[in-house]
Design a protein around this nucleic acid. Structure first.
Lengths: 203, 203
DNA sequence: CGTCTCATGTAAGGAGTTACATGATTTA
DNA sequence: TAAATCATGTAACTCCTTACATGAGACG
């Protein structure tokens, strides 16, 4: 039921088509919430049936049509309600930590490969988040600017601060995961001995 | 398909019934991987069909019976294969950070409530993980001891170190989330002003 | 004798993934 | 005119959650 909330969040900023949303979920926003189009379109129709959205048919080119979804009052209300509630903390499902706990089953090289992949993954995420922060700080964040355009001036500070706060938390999380992976690599070296670097020219 | 792996991981340590597994998933292990019994029993039967497990009927009391699942050679092989592969990093789905990014929609008190819940949740997790580490360090970890009993002495060091490494990473993650929540609370105070403590005797 | 733990399920539905499918429009 | 982008789906499947259901054994 949270895809619904993610869709509401994005659509409160501006009306969009399913395709627009699909693109958002595929890029920046997609690292906080992902959804494939096969889930997006049906959910939008359901939300329209439930009165949270209205779809406006817009012509596109000569023959083409597209449906732009606008949030209704009921949609705003539902979103506000979600925002004023408290999240339930569901149970975890964390393959990497499950794997880490049994890492003695893996061959040393496989363990290294996994830990390096973990580090790389979180380095890439970190770069993403830092880019978002830079954009916020320099006023180049399209997402934030569109949001600010819907708000009175006196609320700009809060909206900006919360977005920055969010990304800053994600950066800190990524840094922690990178550090953990590095400790894991050091541990593998310590337990099984250091592998020679796979550099060129060294037999 | 990862519930399967979690089940294999637990069953490589010792044979268990569905009920035993269900209990594990409900307690300590459950914070890394959770599954309800309605998922466990069918999955065990599927794994038996696939040759990864064999269920041994064991009498229980006078009339009762229970099925104890043992990992087969094929099961060991499948687990080892998973351990030697590299995880795919699926897309995220992170309600709290989604919410944080739009926190200006929430009433200040609701924002505080959510952030405090986040902090509390991770404090509880942290306590859990630290307890696991203490048990490992003092030799009182049932999970680890049962695992070590299946291993030759020279592999004890690695198995112990990886378990410790796992929990230590989880502690660090929890600490980071706690810190982030506290920064969020400070931010709410800064944006909307501090709420008076809901203590007794004031006014 | 009651309550807690042990033991094992079914049924319904929602959420999410993967693959398949189609056609119009814009741009190089 | 070919390729990229825009636009919108269906179908099949797995995964996961929630609720419902039952009965035996152990312990006090």
């Amino acid at each position: 039921m949270s895809l619904r909330t993610a869709l509401l969040a994005l659509l409160t900023v501006e009306p969009m088509t399913g395709y627009d949303l699909h693109k958002r979920f595929d890029s920046s926003v997609g690292y906080v919430w992902h959804a494939p189009d096969s889930q997006i379109y049906p959910e939008l129709r359901k939300m329209e049936r439930d009165g949270l959205l209205v779809g406006k048919e817009v012509p596109w080119g000569q023959r083409g049509r597209k449906t732009e979804y606008h949030v209704t009052e009921a949609g705003i209300e539902a979103f506000r309600e979600w925002m004023n509630g408290t999240l339930e903390y569901g149970r975890e499902r964390d393959p990497m930590h499950l794997k880490a706990a049994y890492l003695e089953w893996a061959e040393p090289e496989a363990a290294r490969r996994q830990l390096r992949a973990h580090e790389e993954h979180h380095r890439a995420l970190k770069a993403q988040w830092e880019e978002q922060i830079r954009e916020i700080d320099t006023g180049h964040s399209g997402m934030l600017n569109r949001r600010l355009a819907t708000l009175p001036k006196n609320e700009h500070r809060a909206a900006t601060a919360f977005k920055r706060f969010t990304y800053q938390g994600l950066v800190a999380r990524a840094e922690q995961e990178i550090e953990w992976a590095r400790q894991g690599l050091a541990l593998v070296d310590e337990l099984y001995g250091k592998e020679p670097e796979a550099g060129p020219g060294r037999r």
